[in-house]
Amino acid sequence: MRWSMEHKETWLHQTNPTAKLLLFLPMFVVIVFVHNPNVLMNWAVGFTVLFILFSGYRMKHIFLFLLPFLFIFVSTSSSMILFGKGETTWFRWGLIHITEESFYRGVHLGFRALLFAIFGLMFALTTKPVLLFYSLMQQVKLQPKYAYSFLAAIRLLPIMIEEFQTVHQALKVRRAAKASGFRGKLELVKRYAIPLLSQSIRRAQRIAVAMETKGFTNDRKRTFYYEVKLGKYDVYLFVVICMIVAVGYYMADVFPYVAVKDVR
């Protein structure tokens, strides 16, 4: 959604969206099965550097994007640090029980969350959603009815946001934009959700009817306005990811930062 923000088109923007997705998604699984915090720290550094150098965004914007992730880091690691199991006690106060094991496990979880965040941000900031869905239709044969539904929904987003503001102002004028208590808050969500959802449903229906009358079919043999192909940049990305993974692994073995090799 932020692709309208000023940025340079780097080679990361030139990669094939599907290829990028298929390279990033397995990393999720790989990261989940890494239990050595040293490896994750190296990877976090490596991929953050890749992101900062090649996302094409200005440093101050990148720092703004990364700010919420510090919250995630703290909040993900804190409950494990404070309440996790462990043998070597560092600190105990009431229910809070910080141990060496739980501390490293918490930090490990923080880095894990940070890595997921970097991958997500790197993908979102260097991919145009429209091209992603065109590419999914062409490279992995996603059915057109799904792809075009997503494309239409993305187009509707600005209208929905405008509608939200209209509803908000209407409720504010009637002093109905605030509520107290859990029940009240849920009622409030409803007050916003009903008009937005019902309008969206009507609009979706109209668009679907219009598409079908204009001859939209789910036939996969079709021409595409945007031809999205694989290219050399996808190979570059693959090589870079492999290098960061391998070097990070090797360095963690040779020059570990912390003595803990397995946080479980």
Partner: peptide
């Protein structure tokens, strides 16, 4: 059908 998919996706995006 396309109508179902489109409506589902639009609601889901909300």
């Amino acid at each position: 059908k396309l109508t179902d998919v489109l409506t589902t996706v639009v609601i889901a995006i909300v």
